[in-house]
């Protein structure tokens, strides 16, 4: 489904964020990316839908080369890939409904959408998405009035509007408390299991990784240093853990991992 080969990203200031990263994602996976802060997780996820242009390497989505895609083609690829963010990235002053509808922009005719006019079917879809994350009551509120957990659910609804085949989630629960973290990841798991949406998610807490991942890859200083299955991550040793997270990392009993 997604095939990444020798992906390298060097930022204009010379920072090498990714070095020769290669892996593939199979349909229906819940693939978790782990790695220390600054290891390049966000960079990797953003390269996949070209929010960031990679320096070298290829990304293939269903056989088409994402890195070579021109704007129209790129938009067609992007609309099949939903994305949710650590900081939710909602338009805080727009209504919840408007934020959700924005997820449909890649499908609708551009001109009417500029004046917030959407086909009835899409409005119906937005309503269903809000229903799914339990936020129909909040539809008319401004996004900034919602709590963190609610905002992330709006983020999920927005991704749902794309009727995506894959969802990229960049530390979706890092700004939420553990209970909410399970709730949000629960939604993602449901989408993964019931709707067959492939999930590519970066996470920080080992217990969450062990609970939700079907496969894990680990990054360290931009290099892919770990590949493991669900079983592997359950059996993960301290040595392996240090290999990914660096010497200063401590594996706590709670399954949390010390961030730098």
């Amino acid at each position: 489904m997604l095939e990444i080969q020798n992906l390298t990203k060097i930022y204009p200031d010379g920072t090498v964020a990714l070095r020769q990263v290669s892996f593939t994602v199979e349909p229906g996976e819940f693939l978790v990316i782990i790695g220390l802060s600054g290891s390049g997780k966000s960079t990797l996820l953003r390269c996949i839908n070209r929010l960031i242009d990679p320096t070298e390497g290829t990304i293939r989505w269903d056989g088409t080369d994402v890195t070579a895609a021109e704007s129209a083609e790129l938009r067609r690829i992007r609309r099949q890939i939903g994305m949710i963010f650590q900081q939710f990235n909602l338009v805080r002053r727009s209504s919840v409904l408007s934020n959700v509808l924005a997820g449909r922009l890649g499908y609708v005719r551009p001109l009417p959408s500029l004046v917030h006019s959407f086909p009835a079917a899409d409005r119906e879809l937005a309503w269903k998405a809000l229903q799914r994350v339990g936020l129909t009551e909040q539809a008319a509120k401004q996004a900034r009035e919602l709590s963190g957990g609610q905002q992330q659910r709006v983020g999920i609804a927005r991704a749902l509007m794309q009727q995506p085949r894959m969802i990229l989630a960049d530390e979706p629960v890092a700004s939420l408390d553990p209970v909410l973290a399970h709730s949000i990841l629960g939604y993602l798991e449901e989408l993964n299991r019931l709707d067959g949406i492939t999930v590519l998610c970066s996470l920080h807490y080992l217990d969450l990784v062990q609970r939700y991942a079907t496969r894990v890859i680990g990054l360290r200083e931009g290099r892919l240093v770990y590949r493991g299955t669900k079983e592997d991550i359950r059996r993960m040793t301290d040595a392996q853990f240090k290999e990914i997270y660096g010497e200063e990392a401590v594996r706590t009993s709670a399954g949390l991992q010390g961030r730098s």
């Binding site: 953003r46 939903g82 994305m83 408007s98």
Partner: peptide
């Protein structure tokens, strides 16, 4: 805030759509 811009861009929106949905609402107030 660049976050919403990135998010709307990621949905496959055009440049103009991104401006209308992610930039303008932030600017109005």
């Amino acid at each position: 805030d660049a976050g919403p811009i990135e998010a709307v861009e990621a949905t496959g929106a055009t440049r103009l759509q991104t401006i209308m949905y992610a930039v303008v609402p932030q600017m109005i107030a």
